[in-house]
Simulated assay, not measured.
Amino acid sequence: MLSSLVVATIFLLTRLTNAWGTLGHETIAWIAQSYVSSTTKASVQSILSSTASDYMANVSTWADSYRYTSGGGWSAPLHYIDAKDNPPESCSVDYNRDCGEAGCSVSAIVNYTSILLDEKSKSSTKLDAMRFVIHFVGDLHQPLHDEALDVGGNTISVTYDGEKTNLHHIWDTEIVEQLADGQDAEGFAKNLTTAIQAGDYGWDAGSWLDGVSLNETQTTAMAWASEANAFVCADVLAAGVDAVEEGDLSGTYYKAHYDVARIQIARAGYRLGAWLNLIYTGQTSG
């Protein structure tokens, strides 16, 4: 029988790499699908060997499942970049400081993008690269996947809707589910895509692609990571660790910070679509 310490450790580890949870990742993929060109769509579908309507959404969480297979444990560090900063006093991400020897989300996006760009890459290698890019672009936009403090919030105990959990998990799952308000990923994505196109909430989607370049893949990914990391100081832990450990965060805390989840999921989907367009057409737009 497993000791309580081992059980607790296993429980914690299962939390570490599931950024946005299933709903968030699938929503990001659905948004991306609405922004890819016909050429990009055909290329992605060919690599994934799928013509299903949810061809990207249905592989968007593959990387999380793969991480827990006997051969996939090596990929765990690629789901995050551990910013060794000091929230809420200061937030920053530095590639040389924060991307470890085993890699990180930023180095993963650089690597797998290069594989997709290389016509000589094997089809099986491109398949994994596509599934990783779809997932890791999403991961990069979850603020606590760009933060080392308390294992990205995994060891910060909180209460949400009467249930005991941790800060990382509520940003992955509970806040997103409360925001979606019963919608499935496709429906949630349609509403967010409409908001992107209409410029709702003051969004300026054109600015979301500022500086995006395949010639500067690391710089692009680091800009996205830094943007998400800034929310750790400004929103996620603005009042400090002690503040989130008190009360039920599904009330006042959710109302104060849910827009971070909304804009980051929208940005991730919009940028993923644009990134894939760049790979296959050389242009961000469809």
Rank of each mutant, 00 (worst) to 15 (best):
Leu127Lys: 08
Tyr160Val: 00
Gln218Phe: 08
Gly21Val: 04
Cys99Arg: 03
Ala29Gln: 03
Trp30Gly: 03
Asp161Met: 10
Ala239Asp: 05
Asp139Met: 05
Trp171Lys: 05
Tyr254Gly: 00
Leu149Asn: 07
Glu119Gly: 13
Arg15Val: 04
Ile279Trp: 15
Pro87Tyr: 11
Val7Gly: 00
Leu237Cys: 01
Ala19Asp: 08
Ser124Asn: 15
Asp181Ser: 10
Gln218Arg: 06
Ala223His: 07
Ile170Val: 12
Gly282Ile: 13
Asn166Gln: 06
Gly138His: 02
Val7Lys: 01
Asp210Asn: 15
Gly286Trp: 03
Ser207Ile: 13
Ile265Thr: 07
Tyr112Lys: 00
Ser3Ala: 10
Gln142Phe: 08
Thr14Lys: 02
Trp171Ile: 03
Leu214Trp: 12
Asp248Gln: 09
Ser4His: 06
Val236Ile: 09
Tyr280Pro: 02
His257Thr: 03
Ala230Leu: 05
Val59Met: 04
Asn191Gly: 09
Ser49Asn: 09
Leu214Met: 14
Met56Ala: 14
Thr22Met: 06
Glu227Ile: 14
Tyr80Glu: 14
Glu26Asn: 12
Asp235Asn: 11
Asp184Gly: 08
Leu12Ala: 05
Leu179Ile: 05
Leu48Ser: 07
Ser207Arg: 10
His257Gln: 06
Asp161Thr: 08
Ser105Trp: 02
Ser53Ile: 12
Ile134Asp: 10
Asn18Ile: 03
Val244His: 02
Gly72Ser: 14
Tyr55Phe: 12
Gly286Ser: 15
Val137Lys: 00
Ala32Gln: 01
Ser49Met: 06
Val44Thr: 09
Thr51Val: 07
Leu16Ala: 03
Ile263Glu: 06
Gly206Thr: 15
Gln264Met: 11
Ala268Arg: 03
Trp74Leu: 02
Asp259Cys: 09
Glu89Ala: 08
Asp139Ala: 11
Arg131Trp: 05
Tyr280Asn: 10
Ser53Val: 15
Ala129Cys: 13
Leu2Arg: 07
Gly103Ser: 12
Val133Asp: 15
Gly202Cys: 14
Gln178Glu: 05
Val232Met: 04
Trp62Ser: 05
Ala234His: 03
Thr9Ser: 10
Leu144Met: 10
Val176Phe: 02
Glu186Ala: 14
Leu237Thr: 00
Gly206Glu: 11
Ala189Cys: 14
His145Phe: 04
Ala261Gln: 03
Asp248Ser: 15
Val44Glu: 12
Phe231Thr: 12
Val260Gln: 04
